[in-house]
Design a protein around this nucleic acid. Structure first.
Length: 482
RNA sequence: GGCGCCGUACCCAAGUGGCUAAGGGAGCAGUCUGCAAAACUGCGAUGCGGCGGUUCGAACCCGCCCGGCGCCUCCA
């Protein structure tokens, strides 16, 4: 039984989809005016993981994640770069897919763009005017917050409380300072679309309401996004949508916590952000290794908690994965000794799915699920110590890969994993071929047989300088890692 | 000013009323090894920011305090 923490109610609730067997979920994507940073990566990864888990649970998921491709920041950026605004959005949509691809994040079922939903947006604004919860002033249209009694129910705040502290410049044309734009009249040179109120463009919030309703219906199951979207974005979405339809909008609201640097929120305005691109370029590992390391790092904390980013934290994630891939290598070598461990394999493999399910059913508790995998790692190493047959090794390996698939981990071949620590990795640009390495190892093992340990250690030193670690097995053969 | 979140060992991090407070990393000791590495074993919070309270029983509930953070303005 899946329980989900719902921001709307402030409680963990049993999840019951509107239609049995299906889930309709909408997640706020990015505004495409710049490179994505780690915070965007976290949000994308959290909701993809939720989607994967729901699918694994047998539910048919329709997952909608939008691009905001018309907005003040995009216009500003286009002016700075002196290029058409469409070039800004297409450039950063490409960058988004590049970065998400590196992280192994799969596209959503539908990835709508605001600019492709103008008809729906205009129709929604018209409906709100018709219901008298929105009003137009010159070429602008505003939502009248005072007309929606539920305003504040998501963010748990009252209109009066907010008025006191609001530092916003109050637009005199608004009837209430918190009224927000549904439609903005175009100034010369700005992107614009025809509407009953003249040329203009949508406000930020309305696009999500329009696209969610178009692709998922007026009421759907899950709406997600970063915690910074609770107010005003999601609050306004609810007001608009419920104001227009008179029905509930999303039933479960999920919000992920921030990525932080030294306990502070990572954000553009503080200037303390790391782009996904930077991290991939700075880390010397191949993309798949860095990507999996980032996934492990991001999933090792519960999605609602803050997560502090640092090189050390990333290296701990890397070491944890080294342990798994080292074990996978052992499993691939199984059948070298006895098969005394085989009898215990079912006791490890059979409860695995249930244990992970138990963790994930509790509000997608990925750290607890990872702990399950870590315990399995220790237990499996013990069996490998005792000796495993080829079939038993394969079965265990398959169990890891299947469980890991949920988190986008454990899918690389052991040859493609890179075991070196970052410091060593960066120092060893020269790469020996597998054949050269094997030859040196054969050479060393000859020396060992002669008990010429000086020569044997010399070879080890040579290889260590290339970032290659040797591990002698009990049977006299040698395993190597790089 | 309003609303909300967080504080668990050296570091990261689960647990939110009841067996010995998960798991990982680092460290130390041991087993194995020609030496290593890996793996395994053992050690490590009598205590969960502090002080009170509720309870047969609290890291978990309530109150106050200390420390940190977020939202209220674009923000994943």
């Amino acid at each position: 039984m899946l329980k989900i923490y719902n921001t709307l109610t402030g409680r963990k609730e049993e999840f019951e989809p509107l239609t049995a067997g299906t889930v309709k979920m909408y997640v706020c994507g990015v505004t495409v005016y710049d490179e994505c940073h780690l915070g965007h990566a976290r949000s994308a990864l959290v909701f993809e993981t939720i989607r994967r888990y729901l699918e694994r649970s047998g539910l048919a998921v329709t997952f909608v994640k939008n691009f905001t491709d018309v907005d003040d920041k995009i216009i500003k950026r286009a002016n700075e770069l002196k290029i058409p605004w469409q070039d800004v959005t297409s450039r950063y949509i490409d960058a988004y897919y590049r970065d998400m691809g590196r992280l192994g994040i799969q596209p959503a079922t539908v990835e709508p763009k605001a600019t492709e939903h103008m008809a729906e947006i205009v129709a929604l604004v018209e409906a709100l005017i018709r219901k008298d919860v929105a009003y137009q002033v010159n070429g602008d249209v505003y939502f009248q917050v005072g007309r929606y009694v539920g305003y504040g129910r998501l963010s748990k705040r009252k209109l009066d409380d907010m008025q006191a502290g609001a530092r916003v410049e109050v637009d005199a044309r608004k009837r209430h300072p918190m009224d927000f734009a549904l439609w903005k009249g175009a100034k010369p040179g700005e992107p614009s679309w025809e509407s009953p109120w003249g040329k203009g463009r949508p406000g930020w919030h309305i696009e999500c309401s329009a696209m969610a309703m178009k692709h998922l219906g007026e009421t759907f199951d899950i709406h997600g996004g970063g915690a910074d979207l609770i107010f005003p974005h999601h609050e306004n979405e609810i007001a608009q949508s419920c104001g227009a339809t008179g029905k509930e909008f999303a039933r479960y609201w999920l919000h992920n916590g921030f990525v932080q640097i030294n306990q502070e929120k990572m954000s553009k305005s503080l200037g303390n952000f790391f782009t996904i691109r930077e991290i991939f370029e700075k880390w010397g590992y191949r993309e798949a290794v860095t990507g999996e390391t980032l996934r492990y790092f991001l999933l090792s904390t519960h999605y609602r908690s803050p997560l502090d980013f640092s090189d050390q934290a990333l290296q701990e994630a890397k070491r944890a994965l080294d342990g798994f891939y080292g074990l996978f290598q052992r499993l691939e070598e199984a059948a070298q000794d006895s098969s005394r461990g085989d009898a215990h394999v079912p006791a490890l493999v059979e409860p695995l799915d249930g244990a992970i399910r138990q963790a994930m059913d509790d509000d997608f508790n990925t750290p607890a699920a990872i702990a399950v995998l870590q315990r399995l790692r220790t237990d499996t190493n013990k069996l490998a110590d005792a000796g495993l047959s080829r079939q038993a090794g394969a079965r265990l390996l398959e169990a890891f890969r299947l469980a890991g698939r949920l988190f986008g981990m454990f899918q690389l071949s052991t040859k493609d994993w890179e075991f070196q620590d970052l410091g060593i990795k960066l120092k060893t640009a020269v790469a020996l071929s597998d054949d050269e390495i094997e030859r040196l190892i054969a050479d060393r093992n000859e020396a060992r047989k002669r008990r010429d340990f000086a020569r044997a250690d010399e070879v080890r030193q040579t290889l260590a300088a290339q970032g290659i670690t040797l591990e002698d097995r009990p049977d006299g053969t040698t395993r190597w890692k790089r």
